[in-house]
Each structure stands twice: as C-alpha cells, then as structure tokens.
Computed example of a mutant assay.
Amino acid sequence: MDSDRSGVLTEVSVQEPKANPKGKAVAGAAPPPPVVISTKVTTTSNPKGGWRRGFAIFDLVLRLCGIAVALAATAIMGTTQQTLPFFTQFFQFQAQYNDLPTFTFFVIANAIASGYLVLSLPFSIICIVRPHLRGLRILLIILDTLPRLLRLRT
C-alpha cells in the first residue's frame, strides 16, 4: 500500500506466476515478471470528521446559547409587572407585557424561536455524530435562514 499527502491510498495486488511443474528452467534466463491482478484506489479522509465535526459542535453550542437567551427573555418579559408612579404617589400605573401589542409580539416571537431551537437540537446532534451528512446540514441552514428571507420579501 502506498500513501501520499493528499490522502489517496493505492493498493496493488501482485501474484507471482506459477513455477514450471517439471522443474526445468533455461539456464541464465530471467524470471518471468509478476502478474498484476487488480489495482484499487481509495480516498481517505479524517475518520473522526475533522473540521465538520468541530463546526457541528459549534452549531450545537450556539443553539444551546440561543435557547437559554430566548427562554430567559420570554420568561422575564412574560412575568414582569411594574407599578409606576404617575405624577404623584397617589396615581399609579400598572404595566404588564400585554398592555402593548409590541410587547405581546415580542413574547410570542421569543417563544416560537425557543421552540424552533429546541426542535432543531436533535438534528444538530445528528450532525455531530455523522459529520459527513450534507443534506441534514443544508436543511438546518435553510430552516435557519428561511425567516430572514421571508422578512426581506415583505
């Protein structure tokens, strides 16, 4: 087996010719050349996944951080209640997230984003276990960018 720096392995199977069964050979004659039966060329890559696995682990870490931040923002915004003095201490204003439609949208959007990130975690883990799956990686990239593409068109 011969290997070069590009990771290509070449395997050559060689079979020696059969000897003359009668044992008679010509004096001073060169031995017959070996017969090549098959040649097989295979390419090898890093069996552990290399940079693809590292990229998948980085993707998983980003998803976990995104889940933590989105859930924290949803929980804080959904449970916040404030009492604000209005002009004097006798007039007070109660404020909640559902008083303004913008805050309600913020809580709902963060909840949807958290749900998507939780549902995409198994796919990200599969990309770590099998780093050579390109279709699943492309699916995650498309699903991650789809909301941005839809927002640009409106």
Results as ranks from 00 to 15, higher is better:
25 A>S: 09
31 P>T: 14
51 W>A: 04
39 T>A: 12
36 V>P: 04
30 A>W: 13
19 A>L: 10
52 R>M: 06
29 A>I: 11
47 P>V: 09
22 K>H: 05
26 V>A: 08
37 I>Q: 14
46 N>Y: 14
35 V>G: 02
21 P>L: 07
22 K>Q: 12
39 T>H: 09
53 R>D: 06
18 K>Y: 06
56 A>L: 00
47 P>R: 10
17 P>M: 01
25 A>H: 12
26 V>N: 09
33 P>R: 13
58 F>L: 07
25 A>L: 13
37 I>P: 05
42 T>K: 14
15 Q>N: 02
50 G>N: 07
37 I>H: 10
34 P>C: 03
23 G>N: 02
18 K>R: 11
50 G>A: 06
32 P>E: 14
15 Q>P: 04
35 V>F: 08
37 I>T: 15
20 N>H: 08
32 P>T: 12
16 E>W: 04
43 T>F: 07
21 P>Y: 02
43 T>M: 04
33 P>L: 12
24 K>L: 13
21 P>A: 11
31 P>L: 09
46 N>L: 15
58 F>M: 04
59 D>E: 11
35 V>N: 13
41 V>P: 09
56 A>F: 01
35 V>L: 08
52 R>N: 07
51 W>C: 03
19 A>V: 01
44 T>S: 12
54 G>L: 14
38 S>T: 08
26 V>K: 14
29 A>K: 15
27 A>V: 15
48 K>P: 04
21 P>K: 01
15 Q>A: 11
39 T>M: 10
59 D>P: 00
28 G>T: 11
16 E>Y: 06
27 A>S: 07
18 K>L: 12
22 K>G: 07
26 V>S: 04
57 I>S: 00
59 D>Q: 04
51 W>M: 05
16 E>Q: 10
43 T>Q: 06
17 P>G: 03
52 R>L: 15
29 A>W: 04
42 T>L: 11
24 K>R: 10
21 P>D: 10
32 P>W: 08
36 V>R: 13
49 G>P: 15
25 A>T: 05
19 A>T: 05
24 K>D: 05
23 G>R: 01
17 P>C: 01
59 D>K: 00
32 P>H: 04
22 K>W: 02
51 W>L: 10
24 K>I: 05
53 R>L: 02
26 V>I: 11
54 G>Q: 11
50 G>Q: 09
47 P>F: 05
40 K>I: 08
23 G>I: 02
16 E>M: 12
39 T>S: 09
56 A>W: 01
38 S>R: 13
55 F>D: 05
15 Q>S: 04
25 A>P: 01
58 F>R: 00
45 S>T: 14
43 T>L: 07
15 Q>Y: 01
32 P>C: 00
50 G>L: 03
